[in-house]
Simulated assay, not measured.
Amino acid sequence: MSVRLKLTFSYAGFLMVAGTLLLAAVWVFLLRYVPDRAMLINPDDRPTGVFPIRSTLLDVFAPRAAAVLAFLLVFGLVGGWILAGRMLAPLTRITDATRTATNGSLSHRIDLPGRNDEFRELADAFDTMLARLEAHVSEQQRFAANASHELRTPLAISKTLLDLARADPDQDTGLIIERLHTVNTRAIEATEALLLLSRAHQWSFTREPVDLSLVAEEAAETLLPLAEKHGVTIETSGEITPTRGSQPLLLQLTTNLVQNAIVHNLPDQGTVWVNTTTGPKSAVLTVENTGDVLTPHQVSTLTEPFQRGTERLHTDHAGVGLGLAIVKTITGAHGGTLTLTPRPDGGLHITVELPTD
């Protein structure tokens, strides 16, 4: 039985019950205030007999009451069917939109007009869900295309080097092996970054107490040789900054930020500042670095996968363009916020705010 039919029967049934109660109330009133019998008086004021009032009223009232109930039944069914159809019309639009989305079209929107009632809230929530799904699917499609391109490039280079070695056996095999090693290392780094990004998207990790200041010090100490190689100074500061989350993922987040700050720095005499502080309800990690002047538009695209911003100054750490994308994903997995701001003098100021609970 459809919902419209159920509502129709409900409306008609309610109308029948209300009509029956009303007629019963009228009949009870008649029983209470109308006498059972009455004396018939002739013109000479002499009684001529007894007239049964109640039985006569029942004979008149019963068929008319049945006719009224029959009319209420027909009226309730017809009116209920019409009212149910009008009430369920928004639900029909939502159902049609659901079928359209099921067929793969996520660009369709309900855009339900009218006042803010339950159906309007449901339609608006569904439109919001469709918008997020469309954005997510588009992001996944771009990610898959970029990942395929990123992994295909080293494979194509390896094939070219092997074809050259096969065509010219007299070439320097040591140089070819060294180039193959570099290309293979880049492919492994890209694959590991993709796996890490996939694991972070799953949000399946055990939350435990973590001191963000110790994580920052460990990341800075690990990357100190890289910073010295590129003439970059790392300055760490801050206080004990407790939070809850995955210590390995937060270490990966901090390491990516500091490494990104080193790679995107000045060719010499560059600086990276790493600081941790505790807010009212959050743990804050900031990583700031000198470097090229960036526009707000460039900064807004840096967290997208495979976005490398400006040309890196150090080609031996070209990266795969997933560092800040991984940072964004890990931050979201911990329920935090990531903010990127260009520095007026060049470089980038990055703030990661994580909940303390």
Rank of each mutant, 00 (worst) to 15 (best):
R4L: 13
K6W: 14
Y11N: 15
A12I: 02
M16D: 03
A18P: 12
A25V: 00
A25C: 04
L30Q: 00
L31R: 15
V34Q: 00
A38F: 00
D45Y: 08
V50L: 05
P52W: 00
I53V: 03
T56V: 02
P63H: 02
P63M: 00
A67V: 09
F71D: 08
L72M: 09
L73M: 05
V74E: 00
I82V: 13
L83D: 13
A89H: 13
L91E: 08
T92Y: 14
R93V: 08
I94M: 08
D96E: 15
A97E: 00
T100E: 13
S105E: 15
S107G: 06
R109A: 05
R109I: 08
N116L: 09
E118H: 02
F119W: 11
R120M: 02
L122I: 12
F126T: 01
F126D: 02
A131F: 08
E134P: 10
S138M: 15
Q141Y: 09
F143L: 15
F143W: 10
H149Q: 15
E150S: 15
I157H: 14
K159H: 11
L164D: 13
A165T: 05
H181M: 12
V183Y: 05
V183G: 07
T185H: 07
E189L: 11
A190C: 14
A190H: 04
Q202L: 08
W203G: 09
E208A: 10
S213I: 01
V215N: 02
E221T: 10
P225K: 01
V232C: 01
P242K: 07
R244E: 12
L250G: 06
L250E: 07
N256K: 10
Q259N: 11
A261M: 02
T271I: 10
T271S: 13
V272C: 11
W273C: 04
T277I: 10
K281Q: 11
L285A: 06
L285T: 05
T286N: 14
V299D: 13
V299I: 13
T301N: 12
L313I: 15
D316W: 14
G319M: 04
G321D: 05
L322Q: 01
G323R: 05
L324W: 09
G332R: 04
A333W: 02
G336P: 10
L340K: 07
L340P: 14
P344G: 11
G346S: 01
V352W: 00
V352C: 01
L354Y: 02
T356F: 07
